[in-house]
Design a protein around this nucleic acid. Sequence first.
DNA 1: AATGCAACCGAAAACGGTTTCGCTAGCCGT
DNA 2: ACGGCTAGCGAAACCGTTTTCGGTTGCATT
Lengths: 356, 356
Amino acid sequence: MSDRSVNLKALAGHLDLTVSTVSRALNDYPDISRATRERVKHAADALGYRPNQNARRLSIGTPETVCYLIPRQHGASSQPFIAQLLSGLGEALNERNWDLLVCQADASAGDLETIDRLVTSGRIAGLVISRPLKNDPRITLAQDLGCPFVVHGRSDHCDNYAWYDVDGEDGFFTAVNHLVQMGHRRIGFIGGPLEYQFAQERLDGYLRGLSHNALAHDPELVQIAEFTDEGGSAAAGLLMEQPTPPTAVVCVTDMVALGTLEALHARGIKPGEQVSVIGYDGLHFGKHANPPLTTMAQPQAHAGRRLGDMLLSIIDGADPRSFHELQRAHLVQRNTDGPAPVKAGQNDVSVREDKQ
Amino acid sequence: MSDRSVNLKALAGHLDLTVSTVSRALNDYPDISRATRERVKHAADALGYRPNQNARRLSIGTPETVCYLIPRQHGASSQPFIAQLLSGLGEALNERNWDLLVCQADASAGDLETIDRLVTSGRIAGLVISRPLKNDPRITLAQDLGCPFVVHGRSDHCDNYAWYDVDGEDGFFTAVNHLVQMGHRRIGFIGGPLEYQFAQERLDGYLRGLSHNALAHDPELVQIAEFTDEGGSAAAGLLMEQPTPPTAVVCVTDMVALGTLEALHARGIKPGEQVSVIGYDGLHFGKHANPPLTTMAQPQAHAGRRLGDMLLSIIDGADPRSFHELQRAHLVQRNTDGPAPVKAGQNDVSVREDKQ
DNA sequence: AATGCAACCGAAAACGGTTTCGCTAGCCGT
DNA sequence: ACGGCTAGCGAAACCGTTTTCGGTTGCATT
């Protein structure tokens, strides 16, 4: 149907008009008569004319394209929600016929250079940054370049830019409260590298949960792991080897929680009975874990769509500071949480004495 | 550092040269003296000049961009490998400073129109099509438009274009042989909608496995499900309600296999002991299933990279028919496969009689 | 009948590059 | 002294749009 070679000039020739008239007719300029406009549009349809986007964007001065920065893969599937996110972003952009570029770039020097090139060469009009560090150079760079951007997550100082995030602090606070209500008083935490802001927030929520319930913060109950099952497994091992192991563990991600379950199995400990485990993410997969994983589920459905809409608004001139959207995670109770074992709870002191 | 406003004209003015000279100097034309060339490049660096890509691409006549067509989401995480794939594609493209566009488009009419617009408006120079149907209109469209493309997977007639695929037929043949070697003689198959070519191939492999081992093909042992755990669970239910249920089931994807495990648990059947289950995909997650899922693992590591390299070669003029890359899946034995239960195997007939 | 004003459309510049072509020096050989 | 050749650069066309600016019409106004 559509022929790549029919351009404005060809269309104009076909219609015995000039390119400027045809262009304005297609773009609904008021100084073109109704009759001509319709004649032009009809012919454009018939000939399958499509304006060349490179030419168009050069002329109008904007690339009409935004870029999603994929974090580099650490573990195997560290980005479980990426398809959904891209889908939502694409949906928002499609309504305007904008394009979605993807580019693998984290906070390293080479990647910053890549991002710089992307915006200064006029390829993109906006950025979507995900998984920000506490102090993320990508954010600084985007600000320096004056390139509109939104952040999926938050960094240390997040007042000056637009972000969409799920409240991990609140999520872990909720998880800890839930465990306390089930009688747990020794609750461990397996976190991720604290350079990631979300890892810090989840730790903060854990700590607030402790103090809110008048529980002491035992540093030995806090372990930092990589965001993988192996990482979780190793950290859980350290937790369980302690003189007084926790009766419950909250984990920074579901993947880490799965590793934790594995470590418990390896020691003959039954998750959900002897030791409770709560993950974070709400991966669909957790349903099939052994046993099915209790988790704080993030509402991921419309993150991409919201981020896309935000970014477009900002490019249109809206104040980035007016876009701060914080969602809540909610407890999805499956089978790895349960009441604290009575003995373990009472043996806290005696066990420690036994060891000494 | 880099200023978006410094263009060729500004750089030329700064150097007291014309834009044409500067452009050729930067592009290593031989008719520019060594001295001038170096002077120009140095100044370009110092001023942070970056050629505007829209202008450049308009001029050279190619968008230097390829597009990955994301299949629309059916289930929750129906595209587990997408991040890895995009990463590999991006890697291949980056070496040339090409861009990677993503666009959600399957075989529906509206999406075809979107693809058409994308190529006829000069936005992309190539396509990556994934999860093709048996007779996929996207492939026909790309061929009609004369747009270079590669396919992740294969369709019905795949001789005329480039593809990268994992041999699902061989994978299921292997899985069936493995089960037969463990003594199974009644083996069920839970497949996906046969409009997908890979679903057909996996069924073909299953059937060849049966006949190769002189086992009769009982149509009742073949169920078609959606590519979700719920789909797998429902199909497995149908399989198990039969007068003579299978002692082993091979599943079109790991997700379907997980649903199958659930259905078995619901009926008090122990996977890997009473009924064996083998999935397909090799999802990392399967390791944490209950019990850990035996599966035919696809080598996904460099799929994106290979597809990207292929596509670039074809755009460069290589014959698409010279790129047919078929990888093999290999058995990852975890805990859902085991020897056929002796009783069940011998009771085939008597059970059926009991029911009658 | 001259003036003013819309309504419509064409001419041309601009966007920022690439690439073809031609011009000017300088050098060589005869 | 003159033609030819090469090296090195400038001039200008071109890619396909958008958009500003004028320039013709035709009609109503005075």
